[in-house]
């Protein structure tokens, strides 16, 4: 079955495409943004294990690579479980002027992995 283009293409009673929720930008819910300090991070993977939204990105060798802002809902669990304080939470509003300067809509994040 090919991927449906619009809702009329989806057969009644079923969801045609597995993992399609990956198109949903749950990051738009976020009010607090986690910032990862790569110099402090020891890649213990505690945040990766505990993230309810699977938003901690790894590089294929078990090292933490960044936080996926497309999906991160900003719950702050990663900040609390981090044993070395490498993640800090900041109000999303602090980033709006920075986003505008780059010509982005402050509510959206263009470069998803930071």
């Amino acid at each position: 079955m090919s991927k449906p283009k619009c809702w009329q293409d989806v057969p009644p009673g079923t969801i045609a495409w597995g993992a399609s929720a990956r198109d949903v930008e749950t990051g738009l819910w976020r009010s607090m943004r986690p910032i990862l300090d790569r110099n402090k991070c020891i890649s213990c993977l505690k945040c990766w294990l505990q993230c309810p939204d699977a938003s901690i990105e790894t590089d294929g060798e078990g090292k933490v690579n960044g936080i996926n802002m497309f999906f991160c809902k900003g719950c702050g669990v990663c900040d609390k479980v981090c044993p070395v304080g490498a993640i800090s939470m900041h109000p999303e509003a602090d980033f709006s002027s920075e986003c505008r300067k780059r010509g982005e809509d402050p509510g959206r994040v263009a470069d998803h992995v930071r």
Partner: peptide
């Protein structure tokens, strides 16, 4: 289970 599910932020069930 993929990302992009609509559970509340900080819900324990998806974890």
């Amino acid at each position: 289970l993929t990302e992009g599910h609509r559970m509340c932020p900080g819900c324990g069930a998806p974890t």
